[in-house]
Design a protein around this nucleic acid. Structure first.
Lengths: 336, 336
DNA sequence: TTGAAAGCGCTAACAA
DNA sequence: TTGTTAGCGCTTTCAA
C-alpha cells in the first residue's frame, strides 16, 4: 500500500549501469569513473533516490543510531543536555533515536530493548537506571552503554558523573561562610543517586562544622515541589540556610519564600541550588548555584562513545560555585 | 570487529526448528504451535535474541520511525512539545528519530534527507521551513509531512497552526481594555511566520482602535533578547502596553523592566506574552499570556499522522487568554 | 503447522 | 574501472 521508495536498481536501470556502480557512487572513496558517477548522480537526482540506511546497515550488522533514553525531557536541565547531545551526535554523523521514559521512576528496560532492536551500537541513559541484565546484554553484544549521573556498582559501564561531592561541599562551605546556624536540604522523593549524594554530603559537611540540617523530601523534582518545600521548611524560623539539590527546586523555593511567605533572600535566609540551569541567572532569581558545564558533559559523552578499551571509565565533570545573589555574605549576618 | 548480534538463525539452530518458525513466533497472529513457540522463546531468551528492525523493515520497505526536526530544543516551548510528542509516539509504537536543526535559520533539507534515508513514513517539523523540493519528494514517496506553526502556501502538506490571529487579537483587546494609549510589539529577527502573523495582527487591531504600535525587532528568540527589548522600548515613556510575541521574550522584558529600569508592571506598563510556557506561571512573573494547549498540539500531530486522505489538512489549535498579573485593569489606569 | 526458497535494498569480494 | 555474485537478517509465499 505504501508507495515503495526508489531503489539503487531503479537508478542503475535508468543510468544504464550496474547496481554496484550506483552503490559505489554513494560510497566514500570507492573507485568509479567520473563518467559513470555523473550518469548515476543524474539518474538518482531525477528519480529522487536516497541510500536506504536500513539496508546499508544490514551488512555492517549495526547502525549508526545512538539510542538516547531520558525522562522529563522538558525540564530545563535535561532539555539542555538533550539539545547539546543531539546536535553533537548529528555533527559526527550519528543519529539520535530518542526514547522518552516518561518519568524518572519508569522502567527503562523496554526502551533499551527497542534500541537493541534497531541495532544501535551505543546507548546513552540520561535518567533512570538500567537493570543489571541489560548491562550484561550490552556487554555481550558490544553495545556501548553510557550512563549519566548514576553510579552503577560495576566496572563495565561508562559513567559520567557531576562532581556532586565537591559541589555540595562548596555549598555547605558557602553557607557556613555566610554565618549559617541551622540548615535545611530540599530534595525530591525520586531518590536518584545524584540527589542522595548531594544531600548526604551536605549534611555531613554541615555536621562536621557543628551545624544541624533538617531534611525535606518532596515528590517529583519540580518548581512546585520547591515551592511546597519553602512553606514547610520555613515554618521553622531558625533555619537560615537552604540547599536545594537542583535549581528547579531552588527557584520554586525562592518564589514561595519571597512571594508567599514574605521572606527576604538572602537577608532572612540563604538559598543555593545545583545545576545552573538557564533560568537560574534570570534577573528575578540570580540564584547562587553550582554549575555543571553542559559542554563538558557533552564532551564526556562523546569521549565515552569513542573510548573502546575493555575497561569502562568513570568521568567526573568538574563543578564550580557560581556566586550570584541568594546567599548571604557574612557582613549581612544578623548578630548572634 | 563489532560483535555480531544474535540472529534468527542462531535461535532456530538452538531450538532445532527452521528460521521461519522463529520469525513466526515473533510475528503477531502467525500460526505456530505452542510447543514450537516455547522452544523458540526459550532459545531466544537464552541467546539474548531480539528482532532486527532494520532487516524487518527492509521487507515492508518503510520503518515505523518518525523523523522529528527541530531547533532550539532546550527552549521551554520546543522542549515541552518534543517531550509530549516523543512520549505519544512511543506509546503508539513509533520511534522518534530526532534531528537537531541547531537554530531556527539553519537549512533543514539535509536533515529531512537523513530521515528519508531511514525510510521513515512521517516527518514532523517543529521549526524551520522545508524547501518546496522536499515537500514534493515527500509527496512522491508517500511520506507524511507535518509542519507545525508554519503556513506553507500549498495544499499537500499537513499543517498545524496555533490560532495566532485570534490570540493576538485577544492581546490587543486586553491591552485596550486596560486603557493602553501607546503600544509596542517585541519580536525576534528570525522572521518566522508565526511571529510575523502575531505582530501584524496586533498592529492592525491596535490601529483599528486608533492606537499606534512601535515595533522592536531583536535577533534570536531568547530571554536576553526580551531584556534588550525592554531597555530600548521603554526609553519611550509613553508606551504603556507591550506585546511580546513569545513568552520567553516577555519574561526577559519583564525582568529588565522591573529590575534594571525600575518600572512597575502592570502599573506603569502592561506586558503580555504568547505560548504559556511553564515559567510564565512562576510567582516571580505571573505573566498574562495566550495559551496554546500542548495536549491539543500533540493530539493534532497524531491525528495528522493517522490522516490518510489525499488532501492534507490545516489544523488550528484554539487559544485562550490567561489572565494573570502583568496586564493593567482599567481601574488602575492613570487618568487622562 | 511447518520448512524450503525467494526476495527486500544494499555492500563487498571476486573476476573480468 | 566495471559487472557479477553472494550474502546481510528478516518476512512471506508456497508446498508439504
Amino acid at each position: 500500500m505504501a508507495k515503495p521508495f526508489v531503489t539503487a536498481s531503479d537508478v542503475a536501470r535508468r543510468a544504464g549501469v550496474s547496481r554496484s556502480a550506483v552503490s559505489r557512487t554513494f560510497t566514500e572513496g570507492a573507485s568509479v569513473s567520473n563518467e559513470v558517477r555523473e550518469k548515476v548522480l543524474a539518474a538518482a537526482q531525477a528519480l529522487g533516490y536516497r541510500v536506504n540506511r536500513l539496508a546499508q546497515t544490514l551488512n555492517n550488522s549495526s547502525s549508526n543510531l545512538v539510542g538516547v533514553v531520558g525522562a522529563n525531557l522538558s525540564s530545563p536541565f535535561i532539555a539542555k543536555q538533550l539539545d547539546m547531545l543531539s546536535l553533537a551526535l548529528l555533527r559526527r554523523g550519528q543519529q539520535c533515536l530518542l526514547l522518552n521514559a516518561a518519568d524518572a521512576r519508569s522502567d527503562i528496560a523496554p526502551l533499551i530493548d527497542l534500541i537493541f532492536e534497531f541495532r544501535a551500537r551505543a546507548i546513552v541513559v540520561l535518567s533512570g537506571e538500567p537493570p543489571s541484565s541489560i548491562v550484561e546484554e550490552c556487554l555481550a553484544n558490544g553495545v556501548k552503554l553510557i550512563v549519566i549521573n548514576r553510579l552503577l556498582d560495576r566496572s563495565d559501564t561508562d559513567m559520567i558523573l557531576s562532581d556532586d561531592v565537591h559541589g555540595s561541599t562548596l555549598v555547605a562551605e558557602r553557607l557556613l561562610a555566610g554565618g549559617c546556624r541551622k540548615a535545611a536540604v530540599v530534595r525530591s522523593g525520586s531518590r536518584t543517586p545524584t540527589q542522595t549524594r548531594r544531600a548526604e554530603t551536605f549534611i555531613r559537611v554541615m555536621a562536621e562544622r557543628g551545624v544541624e540540617t533538617a531534611v525535606w523530601e518532596g515528590s517529583v523534582t519540580s518548581y512546585e515541589t520547591g515551592a511546597a518545600a519553602a512553606h514547610s521548611v520555613l515554618a521553622d524560623p531558625s533555619i537560615d540556610g537552604v540547599f536545594c539539590v537542583t535549581d528547579l527546586l531552588a527557584l520554586g523555593f525562592l518564589d514561595a519564600a519571597r512571594h508567599d511567605l514574605g521572606r527576604r533572600v538572602p537577608e532572612d535566609v540563604s538559598v543555593i541550588g545545583f545545576d545552573d540551569i538557564p533560568q537560574a541567572s534570570w534577573a528575578s532569581y540570580r540564584l547562587t548555584t553550582v554549575a555543571q558545564p553542559f559542554e563538558a558533559l557533552t564532551d564526556a559523552v562523546l569521549a565515552a562513545l569513542d573510548h573502546t578499551a575493555e575497561q569502562a571509565t568513570i568521568r567526573t565533570i568538574p563543578v564550580t560555585l557560581i556566586e550570584r545573589a541568594t546567599a548571604r555574605v557574612m557582613a549581612e549576618a544578623v548578630p548572634a
